[in-house]
Structures are given as structure tokens and as C-alpha cells.
Amino acid sequence: MTIITTSDATSSEDGEKRNTSSDRFRRIIAFPLRQPMLAASCGLLFAFSVLALASPWITGDPAALDPLGRLKAPSADQPFGTDQVGRSVLDRALWGTRVSLSVGISVAMVTTMIGVAIGVVAGYFRAIDTIAMRAMDAVMAIPAILLAIALVALIGASPFVIVTAIAVPEIPRMARVVRASVLTLRERAYVEAAITCGGRTTTILRRHILPGAAGPIMVQTTYVFASAMILESILSFLGAGTPPDVPSWGNMMSEGRQFLQIAPWILGFPALMLAATVLAANLMGDALRDMLDPSLQGGELR
């Protein structure tokens, strides 16, 4: 008796293995066609990451002044133009990618780790739920930007402080999403079955609860990643974020604001790059949600 399946994982025989590996290859080829949104957004983010990693080698010194070439409009020589002290906007914008992406990734990782831990504990252990979630509500009640500015003003603008300041207001959102998933997963029959088999609580959380919540967690992580990049730019724009000697999209826009009427490219290009990155991250989140949330009947990939 054989059951024909679409999964790769069913067979261990040699002939079928060869068959599944070519099957896998076909699936990779077909991936952009089936999930164009996901493929495009992943591709864009990947391109930005490559630019960020390679920028020390592909760009000139972003701090090099050229007093004679100030406020030059975009040209073949300077595709993004120059700013008020003659620095290349292109070089600075590419360097700014490093700040934005590294802050975005760090915040996403910190938020996910802490938020998932709090959410799982609050969702699974009823005794802790109320206390933990009311504490999260308290954190959520503080406007994110005010909290971030206060922290930076209090401790000073180091990368660690910036990441903390942006992550703290995002943690409650992650915790809520995770807690909501855990609350429903906890009541599943297979979780009960695992308990009746004498499973340790840690094993049950790790093997039965967390994998079930992976979809919402991934989606929320991409949203945190996007909003962290925006918050970092806001902080830099307000002068409370990245120090002025490090080029970031936020402080480039802040400086370019004064020359908006005569040299819009100083503000425009970093703003465009920020918009493109954030859009890509959000689209990736949307596509992931459509794909992973069975109630939306979005994708075929399961």
C-alpha cells in the first residue's frame, strides 16, 4: 500500500531520492513565479544587505569634503549629487545602509528573543500571565519615540543604547502576538497528549508550542525589522540617534532638510532608500503572513 504524497520527506530509497532532489530544484526555479511578492522583497533586501556589506570597498570615503563641489546636482560623476560640504550623497547613502540594516536586524533579534520568551511564559503559565501582560501594557503605554529619546538623552547615543531604546517599545507587541498563539496552542489535543505522556514542560514548549507559533513570530519579526529602521531614522533625524560623524539616512535627511529647496537630492535619495527598504520588509511580512496563515488561504506552500 502506498500513499502518494507531495512532500519531499517521505522516502529514503535511492531512486526516489534522486527524484526528490530534482523535484526540489524545480521548486526553487518555480518559487518566484508562485510567490512573486515574497521573491521580489527578499531579493531587494538581499541586494541592500550586499550593498551594506560591500560599501567599504565600492564607495569612496563618505566623510571626504570637497568645498568646491558643494550642492552639485546628480550627474554622471556624482549620481546622487553632493551635499552642502561637497560629500558624495551616493557614498553616504550606501554607508547609511549599514546603520539602518544593522539596527533593524539587531532590534528584530533582540525583540524576538525577549518578546517570544515573555509571550510563551505568559501564554502557557496562567499564574504569570496577568502580571507579565500588564507590565507589557505599561511599556506599551509610553510613546515609542519619547521613550527612545529619553533613554538616549539619559545614557548617551551608543549603538547598544539605540538598539535597546528601539527594542523596548517593540517587545510588548511581539509578546502579545506570541501569547495569543500560545493560548490557542496550549489547548490543542496534541499538547494535552504530550502532557499525558509525561513530557517535561520545557520539552512541551520547545517541541509542541514554539513550532506552532513560528509563523506569527516570523511575520512579526519582519514588521519589527521595518519599524526599527524607521525609528532609527527618526531618532537620527531628531539628533538623538546615530552620531553625526557616522552617515545614516536619518541624519543625512536632517542635514538635507535645510537645503530642501535648492538641493532636494540630499534629502531625497536617503529617503527613497529608506522607503524602499521598509517597503520590502513590509511586503515580505505580508507575503509571509499570507503564506503561513491558513485562514487567509493565501499560498500553496505549507
Binding site: 490543542r188 496534541y190 499525558t196 505522556c197 509525561g198 509542541h208
Partner: peptide, 23 residues
């Protein structure tokens, strides 16, 4: 907990939902 699954085991009526679908 050490007794459950080892000395005393239980089978429920819903085989369709008692197994973790992703394992």
C-alpha cells in the same frame, strides 16, 4: 509527571488531533 506515560498511559478519543501535525 514521571508516572504518566511510564506506568500509566492514556489514549484519547481524538486520534485526528492528538498528534502534532508538524512532527
Amino acid at each position: 509527571r514521571r508516572l504518566r506515560g511510564d506506568r500509566i498511559a492514556i489514549v484519547f478519543q481524538e486520534p485526528m488531533t492528538s498528534l502534532n501535525p508538524v512532527q
